[in-house]
Write a protein that binds this DNA or RNA. Sequence first.
DNA 1: GCTTTATTTGGTCATATTGCCAAGTATTCG
DNA 2: CGAATACTTGGCAATATGACCAAATAAAGC
Lengths: 102, 102
Amino acid sequence: MEDTLYATYQRRAAVIKALAHPSRLLIVDELSRGERCVCELTERIGSDISTVSKHLSVLKKAGIVLDDRRGVQVFYRLRCPCVLRFFDCIEAVIEEKERAIA
Amino acid sequence: MEDTLYATYQRRAAVIKALAHPSRLLIVDELSRGERCVCELTERIGSDISTVSKHLSVLKKAGIVLDDRRGVQVFYRLRCPCVLRFFDCIEAVIEEKERAIA
DNA sequence: GCTTTATTTGGTCATATTGCCAAGTATTCG
DNA sequence: CGAATACTTGGCAATATGACCAAATAAAGC
């Protein structure tokens, strides 16, 4: 197995992994409508603010979101709206799967 | 938090999670060029065949691949080639990230 | 029926993820 | 400076994931 080839898959997997959580998908969806501060997202998600903050740091580390502190608040936004095309791909898989069951 | 809304994100996360592993991405990439039996994939990946088999069952459970036993071998193929559009989205995120560093 | 080849499944161990609470940091305002 | 607000980080317990080996299954051929 070529080392560099596998490294490519690892890099991709890291990004995908960052998206592989319902709360983080909710965050991305929410941010697709504009920037939001942590407390807005926390209210939306319903878990502890520390949990949300950690989810955001996962997304940030993966290069999916950017943060911007303005005063006491920290606003997050999508780094690259292209992640949204993602949802379409995923939904297509889900629909295909459901069609097979029906 | 609406229950049904969150359920949507959970369903999506389940599919994304199934893709969030370098070996499974390699499998998907390989299957994009046609069906493959487990031993072909195993050779490509380089881990134990039981490990590869488990990766395949993860992909199957998520609705990403289909299997077809022919004789002693089991051939896998992509259920929906749309997952491939995925890679483009991911690469775009990675490039965006690297551009920022440079 | 027994053997061989291909694959799946069960068990186990190491490691990673997730969520909450508590404590720490940053910024604003009085 | 001290208090309040917004957020992050550390720690910990519960759970999930991933890899291997060994054992079980499935189909083919003798």
